[in-house]
Computed example of a mutant assay.
Amino acid sequence: MFNSISAQASKLVSLTKSKSVVSKTKLLTITSGKGGVGKSTFTANMAYLLARRGFKVAVIDADIGLANMQVLFDIKPRYSLFDYIEGRNTIEEVISPTAYENISLIAGKSGYQYSSLKTSLVLTRIVDDVKSLNNFDYIIIDTGAGLNEYVQEFLSISDNILALTTTDPSALTDVYALIKMLSKDKEKLLICFNHTKNYNIGETISKSLVNLAKKNRLNSNFMVKYIGNVSTSANISTTSRLRKLFVQEFTHDEITLQLQKIIDILLKEIK
């Protein structure tokens, strides 16, 4: 399925390349495989730190049917990305400003019935259209859990993919499945560990995943790069319940400093 979607994405890029506006906007897709690892919270706080560095960021909530990014940013968007995809509103109308300077949100829609979206790339069309506005430095896509065809569609168009995981065995199993899938068509995968006590734990597990990939003779040219960890902290869940961002409320907390280090590496890695 992923190969099919990826091939269609390549054809679409080829067909539209001459018509596309050269854009400064870079794309980062954040995924997890397993749900419940804190991906949306991680994404929202990362967007804030990028914005604090002066970058203009558009966050796309691509968690089809279970969108919650508007809760984290504490806004009530009038329109969602589906209003644009279904032709009811313009791209500018579905981009909602947030209370945070330099951050805009393209909201998803909880409970959305997406069975009618049968044409591959109908969802990812919005990414090209936001890029063509040339208004943002970064687009961050927050995908849904799992590796369904909609998640795969977003992964297929991104060269910058960050997998967020935990040390939970089922989460690691899902990350390895992601590695197997992406190694067929992509050059690399960045990995970050959430709710992990220290940097070394994530580093050790990442090396084990790489060794397993080598043992199973996955694409030897595919690179898995560990870029850091965020420790467990009660401050994260507390601020989320209050619809606030922990990196804003706890500027000098260890978890904020850890996320800052991750962003330092990301800025070097993102093409």
Rank of each mutant, 00 (worst) to 15 (best):
N89R: 15
I95K: 08
A99P: 02
I106K: 06
E86N: 07
Y79K: 05
V127W: 02
E92W: 09
I95V: 15
F82V: 02
Y114A: 15
Y79G: 04
V122H: 00
L117G: 00
E93M: 06
E92M: 10
T90A: 12
R125P: 00
E101G: 00
R88T: 06
I126R: 09
S120D: 14
I75E: 03
L123A: 01
Y84I: 05
N89I: 13
S96G: 01
S110C: 10
T98S: 03
R78W: 03
T98F: 03
D128Q: 13
P97E: 07
I85G: 04
D129R: 13
Y112L: 11
Y112H: 12
F82N: 03
L121H: 07
E101S: 02
K76L: 06
S80Q: 07
D83T: 07
I103P: 01
S110T: 15
S80V: 06
E86S: 04
I91E: 07
S104W: 10
L123C: 01
E93V: 03
L123G: 00
D74H: 13
K109W: 12
I106L: 10
A99V: 09
R78K: 14
G87C: 11
V127A: 04
G111H: 14
S116I: 05
L81N: 02
A107Y: 02
G87Q: 09
S96W: 02
Y114M: 09
E92K: 11
P77R: 10
A99D: 15
E86R: 08
I85R: 03
I103F: 04
I106A: 06
Y114F: 15
A99C: 08
R88G: 01
E86G: 01
S80F: 06
I75K: 01
I106Q: 05
Y100T: 04
T98M: 02
I75A: 02
R88K: 12
R78D: 09
T119Y: 05
T124E: 08
T90M: 10
Y100E: 08
T124S: 13
I91C: 10
K118S: 11
A107T: 10
G87P: 05
Y114K: 12
G111Q: 13
A99Y: 01
L81K: 02
Y114L: 09
E101N: 03
